[in-house]
Design a binder for these strands. Structure first.
Lengths: 225, 225
DNA sequence: ACGGAAACGGTCAGAGTTGACCGTGTGCGT
DNA sequence: ACGCACACGGTCAACTCTGACCGTTTCCGT
């Protein structure tokens, strides 16, 4: 009653654009959280609005249709993941790492990216996009952009000396796809990712492939006359 | 009116057990078809009963709850896929294949298994099982059994001389997981699987890894004093 | 032959989901 | 200062999906 308009409690007078940005951020983050925790099938608009802490009106004002919300979530997922990757790799990067131990570290780092909530959110969207042309149309270019960006980050993880090896492109692609394939099985078979038997296998295979002299594209005629 | 009970038109007098088996077969096949075509989220009991051509009573008599139906679909998927794999590999197997061309053939065959509807049905169930403990409990042992069985089939595809190589287990696992990871991207990026750039990469990497002399598990100390 | 249970066919209520709709307050251009 | 569109808050109707429920036919043991 006797309180004057206290300026320390006031919500800092947000502009209209800021409120809109906040709303979108809240809702899209909540959408990705729901995808991760509940899965695509149980991710309803009510679940999202509850988790985001917004009213139904606020949700429907920014995303009138569920389809548009999920499409926006795809783009949000991509941009958020990209930002995470870049800050995260710059924090754990070690410029003067001894030598071949860098490969082992890089493999471990790469594998750790497949345990983050991002990966499962992406999987949910991927599988949903398979039977949803609208989602697919959005997801495809977004994932392409992300793919090239991630490749650069991975290159930075491995470092120049490894990247220069002729067999490196094959190693990078093989590791990346194999890890994705292995990570997918964790959906129904949850073990300790740190003790995954594939981890030493990836390291050993990478060493062998990088040490192979030819680009490994010609099958025979290895020995010179 | 004047027709006697015609024995040529009568539906061959099925026993009760046969009808039950037919119903389950119809419903479970339709369930897997729905998973492949519509995806998990849009696979409803009504969709299934329509596609199976059964009444609601018939569906609910055999599968009172949707959960049980999907769990049964998991087992059905596994057994059906296993049977398909065995008959299919025995039909395309070539005992006296020249030599290393067998590897190329095996890689191509293995890759072709990731384009069948089975794979996408499995992916739908895997992702659903991640957030559904009931599905996961059923899927896990079933996929384990399938995994070992498939490994045997793959071994048969490669043949004894390749299988005997010390690096073979790594090659098999790497190929299998990498193909799964690549196949997953076809959910949102549909290209021609026959011209996938990974195909020559897999073949080349397999050759290199199989040709490597040591088991490739010890990182250093290659040269003896 | 005959009673009972299995194997349906078909309806319907209840819960859940989506989005249209209307009312309200407030930033913002003029 | 002023009004208008934006950014909500909140309600509700239409729709969908699930599973309970009841009636009917057909197989099967005795």
């Amino acid at each position: 009653m006797m309180r004057p308009p206290e300026h320390s409690v006031r919500p800092a007078r947000r502009t209209r654009g800021e409120r809109t940005a906040d709303s979108r951020q809240l809702i899209l983050d909540a959408t990705l959280d729901c995808l991760f925790e509940d899965g695509y099938a149980r991710t309803t608009t009510v679940t999202i609005q509850t988790r985001a802490g917004v009213s139904r009106g606020r949700l429907l004002h920014h995303f009138p249709h569920r389809d548009g919300l999920l499409v926006a979530a795809c783009q949000h997922l991509a941009s958020r993941h990209l930002a995470e990757m870049q800050t995260w790799v710059s924090g754990t990067l070690d410029p003067d790492c001894p030598d071949a131990a860098r490969l082992d570290r890089a493999v471990g780092l790469l594998w750790s990216t497949f345990r983050q909530p991002y990966f499962w959110g992406a999987v949910e969207l991927w599988t949903a996009a398979r039977t949803d042309p609208g989602l697919r149309a959005t997801l495809q270019p977004e994932e392409r952009r992300l793919g090239t960006a991630i490749r650069h980050v991975v290159d930075a993880m491995f470092g120049g000396s490894i990247t220069a090896a002729p067999g490196y492109p094959t190693v990078r692609e093989l590791l990346f796809t194999s890890m994705r394939g292995v990570a997918l099985t964790y959906a129904f078979d949850q073990r300790d990712p740190e003790r995954d038997p594939h981890l030493p296998m990836w390291r050993a295979a990478a060493r062998t492939l990088l040490a192979a002299d030819p680009p490994a594209t010609r099958p025979n005629d290895r020995r010179r006359p």
